[in-house]
Write a protein that binds this DNA or RNA. Structure first.
Lengths: 345, 345
DNA sequence: TTGTAAGCGTTATCAT
DNA sequence: ATGATAACGCTTACAA
């Protein structure tokens, strides 16, 4: 007993109309009597028919899917709160539009060019999300050569034909965090960054640097790290081992900040009494560690939504405007305080 | 200037053969002279031709993609280390086989039936991964009705026609953790679980219970929580507020355990001196909090690999055997110690 | 307003 | 061993 799959032809014959009528009815196209349309729709529902996306794809030369390629080391991925929320946000708008999300994760970032190329030539997707932009990112040129539509998260520093969905993580994010520390009276404020090839790492560092300069405070030491807990711990150990250790550290993300706090505690250095710490991301745990972490809250979910909307607009109409997202917000908790020995105000 | 996409017909005419010859050459099928095959392959490479998956899909009635539907609340998703690693593992085998991963995340878990149904009728995927199995999970029946191949993560408690990829998270996972605490001399060992509708939550609770029973130690209090940091904190506050608070707590995951440690510290209760704590997952941060967290390490990456292999096998040959993964491992760190005041051995 | 027929780019069938 | 030709299920001119 073979369970025949219902096709448009079945619906057409059952409804006593032609295939095109069914197609027109389904896609709500003009040129069909309202009565016919209703009838067809009823029959379709009754038969439980849904158009086969494979056939549809071939006919209209569209995949009805967007791609997201993640080229991060697994250990980096699993503790990063960004992607799950970003994806959830993107999905929330894509699924409503009948679009799917194709996720590809690469163990070796160097394979990414081949991956994009394959996605494009195989026709698996109609566009891609470009995240974790690097300086002089070659993917922008690659995708425009492949004529594969894309949306970038923040603007690339190379000429790009693609719309960008931007969330400025410097102001009032890192900037506010640094100013907060300055206002508390800190004058030796260090920074721990993520890998410098990422534009966002450098943007955060520059924001920290600018805030110090604006306040006329000498620039504290910078340690380049990698967004991991182990990297954050090592960086912290390095900073606290200096002759003149900082009294505050601005971290590029929460994970490094939390690991940093643990290192300080291990060294018998109380946070925030002897060391103030700020993070970035506002992961759920940030509010539940001891002491609770002062950090910067961004909205990856909203970012995902906007990116998806922009990509849909782009493939629908050939162009889409850049969009600017709401600025991140400084969440002051208890990992920051006046430097030890500073006078009460 | 229209950039014509290269098709199989172009390759065929350029190579001076028929379309079928090209198809045969590409798919390495017998019945083609070796010389012809080589020639066709050369021409194809030279022209940069890759078969269009959309056309291929329609012709062979396969999507060359598997689906993964995540029906968790966003905040729960972004701090869970499981999925990113699981997905990375699955992808590592899928991409080698030319399969793609379709990811769908639902804001409202109740929508999942509709989502699976749509994936199936639209023909978007050839199979799905069934994760976060619940007691009496209705998805098993749904998928077998839809005739959509699936693989379950661990065995379902309802009759299932699908292969299961199993990783026993009780022994020596939670069991070992509990025995570790018992060996240290604890006799009041509490447990904080995840939502009880999840089979893994209950399995972990049962393992904890059985270990206590086996040791003849009275069962400590259980608090049902939700795998979030905030839930873990609340549960811990509840436990520590009891007349006879536990001296050790076995948590269902790391996130709750870390939040629990923070609560204890806030209450001035030293970990591990006054309270021993164990987690589950071995997230990266577990080794970098203070004190470092004793926990259970599982391998979501390997789980993803095996699940993907099993699904491939299933759609290729119609059936696939269950597979048993390596047991999780107890990682003893410094959040566990002898109960306060217990005699040195 | 409705039906017919020609694609879309593969794979599969069947002659040759 | 190779080449026509018909599916696959849908959309979309174009006719009627």
């Amino acid at each position: 007993m073979i369970k025949r799959v219902v096709t448009i032809a079945d619906v057409a014959s059952r409804a006593g109309v032609s295939k095109s009528a069914v197609s027109f009815a389904l896609n709500g196209r003009p040129g069909l009597a309202e009565a016919t349309r209703q009838h067809v729709l009823d029959v379709a529902r009754e038969m439980g028919w849904t158009p086969n996306q494979r056939a549809r794809s071939l006919a209209v030369s569209r995949a009805f899917a967007f791609g997201l390629i993640l080229a991060r080391a697994p250990e980096l991925l699993s503790s990063d709160p960004f992607y799950p929320s970003f994806i959830a946000g993107a999905e929330s708008v894509l699924s409503k539009s009948g679009y799917a999300l194709l996720l590809q994760v690469l163990e070796h970032p160097a394979e990414d060019a081949a991956a994009y190329r394959r996605l494009a030539t195989e026709g698996r997707v109609d566009g891609v999300f470009l995240t974790d932009l690097r300086h002089g990112d070659p993917r922008v040129a690659l995708l425009s050569e492949l004529e594969l539509p894309a949306v970038t998260l923040n603007r690339s520093d190379v000429p790009s034909p693609f719309p960008a969905v931007c969330l400025d993580d410097s102001a009032p994010g890192i900037t506010a965090a640094t100013e907060h520390l300055l206002a508390l009276g800190h004058t030796r404020i260090a920074h721990v960054t993520g890998p410098v090839e990422f534009m966002h790492s450098v943007r955060r560092r520059d924001a920290w640097r600018a805030a110090l300069a604006a306040a006329g405070v000498p620039e504290g030491p910078v340690v380049v790290s990698d967004f991991t807990a182990s990297g954050g711990a090592a960086a912290t150990r390095e900073l606290l081992g200096l002759d003149e250790p900082p009294t505050a550290i601005v971290y590029g993300n929460d994970l490094m900040a939390m690991a940093g706090m643990a290192v300080a505690q291990e060294l018998g250095l109380l946070v925030p009494e002897r060391l103030s710490v700020t993070g970035f991301d506002d992961t759920e745990l940030a509010a539940y560690v001891h002491p609770t972490l002062t950090t910067v809250r961004t909205s990856p979910f909203a970012w995902g939504q906007e990116a998806a909307r922009t990509l849909l607009r782009l493939v629908d109409s050939g162009s889409a405007p850049d969009v600017e997202l709401e600025s991140p917000e400084l969440i002051v908790r208890s990992s920051t305080a006046r430097p030890y020995g500073s006078p009460m105000t």
